[in-house]
């Protein structure tokens, strides 16, 4: 109960503060639109072409490998909390888990998915 209240109250308070900041800037700031101002900033040159180009597949790879290892880390939190009770059994359990995923990391490493040039 107390936990829920503290979270909700903080969410509302911080959310309110952020909203107030944005609207204050909108209220207090001047607004004059000129063609040059609306242009994308490319160090003074007129912008050429669309800004949204395609991106190297590397970034996508990074994100997908991240998800997999993030899930791995997520399994570690409850394990760490209960480690004292699980003892050697828990250690062996996690060692197997980490070894399998360690092979995954080695595979990614060896295939060069982590190389950036």
């Amino acid at each position: 109960m107390q936990q829920s209240i503290s979270v909700l109250v903080t969410f509302v308070l911080v959310g309110g503060l952020v909203a107030v900041m944005v609207s204050l800037g909108w209220l207090l700031g001047p607004r004059t639109e000129t063609p040059a101002k609306g242009e994308a900033f490319e160090c003074g040159n007129p912008p050429s072409g669309s800004a949204w180009g395609r991106f190297p597949v590397k970034f996508y790879m990074t994100a997908i490998i991240f998800i997999i290892f993030d899930v791995e880390v997520v399994f570690l939190y409850p394990w760490a909390v209960l480690f004292d009770r699980l003892g050697w059994f828990g250690f062996a359990e996690m060692l197997v888990f980490l070894t399998v995923l360690g092979f995954g990391l080695l595979y990614v490493w060896q295939k060069g998915a982590l190389e950036w040039d």
Binding site: R85, E93, V96, F97, L101, Y107, K111, A113
Partner: peptide, 27 residues
């Protein structure tokens, strides 16, 4: 954690294999 690491220990270990397959597939 009690449930996951005792009763469902096997499922937990199999998850690692599943994740491994996902890594290989992505690469």
């Amino acid at each position: 954690a009690e449930r996951l690491f005792t009763r469902h220990a096997l499922a937990f270990e199999v998850t690692s294999v599943l994740l491994l397959v996902a890594i290989v597939g992505a690469v």
